[in-house]
Design a protein around this nucleic acid. Structure first.
Length: 785
RNA sequence: GGGCGCGUAGCUCAGUGGGAGAGCGCUGCCUUCACACGGCAGAGGCCGGAGGUUCGAAACCUCCCGCGCCCACCA
């Protein structure tokens, strides 16, 4: 009873024997590649470019959602493209290479800028492609012919064009403003690169004595006493009667030869502390604003390396935290210290290094975001971009409404050099190509800005630069077909960094939203729902699981918990469970191959020839198909995998295959032919529906089932199943009666255990009156009912 | 401080107005002709708490408790 088609199949599914062979076949078949003039409604996803620094981590495995979207789109006849690429990842990559240098006892300054950048390129060439090859192991159907890099020539030209154009439009400007500075990275950061950690610090209260020597003074409180060295005023609320006589007077700085005026400003909260605030315009954003309103001096007392500047007088040269304690000690000695107490507050830290961020006054480039954000807001309000899950739409609205200008310059070497040049008089010339003369003074000895752009400045252009856009007005067949992209699929954690910026810049330059759907996945967590982290020791290495369980098992385990916006718990147990399911699917197909006797999937026989079990499974198949289709409307993978899992295991394998044995192991040849036709057809549809989720095993089994040779004739190139029947409630109810009866029979170990009142139907059911052991026998026996 | 989300079986979660469910784990039985990576039968839950709406609430409303995330320039 062994069909030749199954002869080669082992009794357990072995992904090692399948996955890499299948992937190589797909890749050489050209099925991953799409052209703009291919038939079908366009469908485009651009891969959120992974950083060149990394090895594959579990977050990248969630790209499987995009693979499923694209595979499903192809099967439903759409002209689908999925574009791969990588991000040069500014600071991240520079840091990695600097660490490598440090191991050799070198810093980037030892090499100099040019040699260092060369060194990073070497590193990128050597390790950068690794991750993309790892993505192949996950089965991703990326259009490799379209691979791009945020720092390659075409993308770099686009960056320059965008920068210069925004400058011409007056939206990109250079300014001396208070920015977030990471003393460890030695660069400015944008607001969103700063984390706010709740920290127990110390609130220090001290007295500024009156400058005229009269008794007392004004009490102020601070969590950063060292900044008092840069104080240039005291502020009180204008309506605060306690200080009515103080406004206009001056206090004396205890350590520096400076007098500080008392000014009135609405910003001050009379309820907080003493009601008076020390003002340090050079080191605090609020104070900076107050300083501007009252025309106060800004005195920088902290340097980029976070030590105290010459302006700090006796404290010059100290580290900032050392100076904090020294200032307190000096205040105490001077009899000015009033109080120190624990104080819970938010401290800004660098999201990369964790170092405490220092607000510093600095010359930087800023993008005026308001006009761009407003345009994006209009688009969101108009529903041009659908957000999944829908609750996150509000997030984008809130975010865009409250945006501050974006500091885009970084004091690092790895990245797109800012296309601005300075003459000896510091006039700025912004240009597409290296200018020869200063636009302001005609000077010829020009020096290019040392800084590079925030890495997100280039990646925000990704949805259109990967399709050939290099400057405003550009159009290409790819852009006409695939812009806007259909879906932007990312983790919700980069909505601020990336997604909202793409939305703004895409609208600004191409006048259309860059994608019509934003689909957010969550974070991959461990089996207990905890965040994965090396220090917890609960990190899952996807490559390890691909080796041990196969890529499909890892993919399925992720899909089973993956709905829009939800976090995805993953443990070795989940992967193992998924692997067992694959084995079930494999063996169900193997059984079919052994009994189909060469029958290939085709049309379902006429209803008059179908048995109850046949009609039941076809009804269930159609119900499942409809449910899966529904879940594709929002790409709810958890629900669609649950529906398919339940159908495949609990209905197809546990009931229909058992019922089919009655016929297939019997001797009614006409009935056998009918059952074979139904079985082949149901399996074919099941494999198709599973394919976007678990592409390898389904491809392999489908080739055995259909005899397809692979190459361009493979499952991934087939059509998505359509209805073969309609769900029939009567049929399902009839079959449910049988299932209930069988279950009841099985519950009794022997007929003597059966209550007399139930004995008659059970005896009829069993035909033997004694214990029945296999489901096949039971279903067979009941078939006569 | 503002916003969002979540508390259902030991664990992870589905269910959102009328039978309390799934996977894993657990208990028992079974090598039976696709699969022991399997089959079958089970145990296990005042659905976070308190009020309210309703003929009826795990679900809808209010408050409370607990957990998580995002945003935020009160020293």
């Amino acid at each position: 009873m062994t069909d030749s088609a199954s002869a080669g199949l082992p009794t357990a599914y072995d992904p090692d024997a399948v996955e890499q062979r299948i992937y190589a076949d797909w890749e050489s078949s050209g099925l991953f590649h799409a052209e703009p003039d291919d038939p079908g409604e366009p469908f485009a996803i651009v891969l959120p470019p992974p950083n060149v620094t990394g090895a594959l981590h579990i977050g990248h495995a969630l790209y499987n959602t995009e693979d499923a979207m694209v595979r499903h789109a192809r099967m439903t006849g759409r002209n689908a493209v999925w574009v791969p690429g990588m991000d040069h990842a500014g600071i991240s990559t520079q840091t990695v290479v600097e660490k490598q240098l440090a191991a050799e006892g070198l810093t980037r300054h030892d090499l100099g800028r040019e040699a260092f950048v060369d060194r990073v390129w070497e590193w990128v060439d050597e390790y950068g492609g690794q991750i993309l090859n790892q993505l192949r192991r996950l089965g991703f159907s990326l259009d490799w012919e379209r691979e791009a890099f945020t720092f390659d020539e075409p993308r770099s030209r686009a960056v320059t064009e965008v920068f210069v154009t925004l400058h011409e439009q007056g939206l990109l400007y250079r300014g001396n403003r208070l920015i977030n500075w990471c003393p460890q990275c030695m660069t400015a950061l944008s607001d969103i690169e700063v984390d706010h950690a709740e920290t127990t610090g110390t609130l220090t209260t001290f007295v500024y004595p009156w400058a005229d020597g009269s008794d007392g003074g004004i009490e102020v409180a601070t969590t950063r006493p060292e900044t008092m060295l840069g104080d240039t005023a005291i502020a009180v609320h204008p309506d605060d009667e306690r200080f009515a006589g103080a406004i206009g007077r001056t206090v004396a700085h205890p350590f520096l030869d400076r007098e500080l005026p008392v000014v009135a400003d609405d910003y001050v909260d009379p309820e907080f502390g003493s009601g008076a605030v020390k003002i340090t315009p050079a080191h605090d954003p609020n104070d900076h604003e107050i300083g501007r309103r009252h025309d106060l001096d800004s005195i920088t007392v902290i340097t980029p390396t976070a030590s105290m500047a010459e302006t700090a007088g006796p404290f010059a040269g100290m580290d900032r935290f050392e100076a904090r304690e020294a200032v307190v000690a000096a205040l105490d000695e001077a009899g000015l210290l009033v109080d120190r107490r624990d104080y819970l507050h938010q401290v800004g830290t660098c999201s990369r290094t964790g170092d405490v961020v220092e607000p510093l006054l600095s010359d930087q480039w800023f993008l005026q975001v308001r006009p761009l954000a407003d345009k994006a807001l209009d688009a969101v309000a108009a529903g041009d971009t659908r957000v999944l899950p829908p609750r996150l739409e509000k997030f984008f609205v809130d975010w865009l409404e409250n945006l501050h200008d974006w500091c885009v310059s970084r004091q690092i070497w790895w990245g797109h050099r800012i296309p601005a040049w300075y003459c000896p008089d510091d006039h700025v010339t912004v240009a597409r190509t290296t200018p020869t003369t200063c636009t302001a003074c005609r000077a010829t000895d020009l020096r290019q800005d040392d800084d590079v752009l925030d890495t997100w400045f280039s990646s925000q252009l990704w949805p259109f630069t990967v399709f050939g856009w290099e400057q405003p007005g550009d159009t290409t067949p790819e852009l006409e077909t695939w812009y806007p992209n259909t879906v932007m699929e990312t983790g919700y954690d980069i909505n601020t960094f990336w997604v909202s910026r793409m939305l703004q810049i895409g609208l600004w330059f191409l006048d259309e939203v860059p994608f019509t759907t934003i689909w957010n996945h969550g974070l991959v967590r461990d089996g207990q729902g905890k965040k994965m982290s090396k220090s917890f020791g609960n990190v899952i290495d996807p490559l390890e699981f691909i080796e041990s369980h196969g890529a499909d098992a890892l993919r399925l385990a992720l899909f089973q918990h993956c709905s829009p916006g939800t976090d995805v718990p993953l443990s070795p147990d989940w992967v193992e469970g998924a692997r067992r399911f694959l084995n079930k699917l494999f063996n169900a197909t193997r059984f079919a191959l052994q009994t189909l006797d060469g029958t290939r999937p085709g049309d379902v026989p006429p209803a008059t020839e179908l048995g109850l079990a046949d009609r039941w499974i076809l009804s269930r198949l159609e119900a499942t198909r409809a449910e899966v289709d529904t879940h594709y409307e929002t790409w709810d993978f958890a629900r669609m995998s649950a529906a398919l899992y339940h159908f495949t295991w609990d209905e197809l394998a546990d009931w229909y295959l058992e019922a089919a044995k009655v016929v297939l192991y019997g001797d009614d040849e006409a009935a056998k032919a009918t059952t074979r036709a139904v079985l082949a057809r149901v399996l074919d549809d099941v494999l198709r529906m599973w394919h976007p989720l678990i592409p390898f095993v389904t491809e392999e089994l489908w080739r055995h089932l259909t005899g397809a040779p692979g190459g361009t004739t493979s499952l991934m190139a087939q059509d998505w199943p359509t209805a073969v029947t309609t769900p029939d409630a009567d049929v399902e109810a009839d079959f449910a009666v049988i299932m209930d009866l069988v279950t009841e029979v099985r519950r009794f170990r022997s007929l003597n255990d059966v209550p007399p009142s139930r004995r008659f139907p059970l005896v009829v059911a069993s035909r033997r009156g004694d214990l029945l052991t296999t489901q096949a026998e039971l279903v067979m026996a009941l078939a006569g009912l």
